[in-house]
Amino acid sequence: QWKVGDKCSAIWSEDGCIYPATIASIDFKRETCVVVYTGYGNREEQNLSDLLSPICE
C-alpha cells in the first residue's frame, strides 16, 4: 500500500512518458493521490492504481 512520501513512478499526462515522482498526498476515498515529479516540481493527480514502482536511476 502506498503512503505519503513514497517514491514511485508515474505517467505524466502531457506526454505519456514515465517519470520518477514522490507521493505528496493521498485521498483513500477516491483512490487518488497527488504526485510531485522529481526534478521538475510539477504536481499532478493520479489514480493510486496507476502508480508504478520507482525507477532505478
Rank of each mutant, 00 (worst) to 15 (best):
R30D: 07
D6A: 00
D15H: 04
V4F: 04
K7Y: 11
V4H: 08
G16H: 03
D27A: 03
C33W: 11
L48V: 04
S9T: 08
A21S: 02
G41E: 04
R30H: 08
C56I: 15
E44N: 05
V35E: 00
P20T: 09
V4K: 01
I18A: 06
G39R: 10
A24C: 07
E31M: 15
E14D: 05
Y37M: 01
S13M: 07
C56Y: 15
Y19K: 01
S13E: 03
V36F: 04
A21F: 10
V4D: 13
Q1I: 03
T38A: 11
R30C: 01
G39F: 13
V36T: 05
A10C: 05
E57K: 06
W2L: 13
K3L: 12
S53M: 13
I18W: 07
C33N: 00
Y37E: 00
C8Q: 00
R30K: 13
R43F: 12
G16W: 08
P54V: 08
Y19H: 07
F28E: 12
G41I: 05
A24G: 04
L51G: 03
E44A: 05
D6N: 00
V35N: 01
L51H: 02
L48E: 04
A21E: 02
R43G: 03
V35T: 02
V34Y: 05
K7W: 11
N47P: 08
P20N: 14
V34R: 03
S13V: 06
E14Y: 15
S53F: 10
Y40D: 01
S13N: 04
T38C: 13
Q46C: 04
E14L: 14
D6S: 00
E57Y: 13
C8H: 00
S53K: 11
L51M: 05
Q1K: 14
V4A: 01
L52C: 04
D27Y: 08
C17M: 14
G39E: 04
I18H: 01
I55G: 12
N42P: 02
D27V: 09
D15R: 10
Q1H: 11
K3D: 13
K29W: 11
E44M: 09
P20A: 13
C17V: 05
I18S: 02
I55A: 10
D50P: 03
Q1V: 07
E45I: 11
T38K: 05
C17N: 15
S13D: 04
E57F: 13
L52E: 02
D50R: 07
V36Y: 04
R43E: 11
G39C: 13
K29N: 13
W12F: 10
V4C: 13
C17D: 07
A10D: 02
E14Q: 14
Y37C: 03
I23Q: 03
I55H: 08
G41W: 09
W12S: 14
A10Q: 04
R30W: 07
P54M: 10
S13L: 07
L48C: 15
L51S: 01
K29F: 12
K7N: 10
E14T: 09
S25H: 05
S25C: 07
E14H: 13
Y40G: 03
C33S: 00
P54Y: 09
T32K: 08
I26A: 02
V36P: 01
P54I: 10
N47L: 12
V34F: 06
K7P: 10
Q1C: 15
P20I: 12
K7L: 12
D27I: 10
I55P: 09
W12T: 03
Y40N: 15
L51I: 08
V4E: 13
Y19M: 05
G16T: 03
I11R: 15
R43H: 10
C8N: 00
L48W: 06
C33Y: 08
T22M: 08
N47Y: 13
W12N: 09
L51T: 02
I23R: 02
D27K: 06
T38W: 12
Q1W: 11
C8W: 04
S13Q: 03
A24D: 09
L48D: 00
S53Y: 11
I18Q: 04
D50I: 09
C33F: 09
I11H: 01
L51A: 04
K29T: 12
R43Q: 14
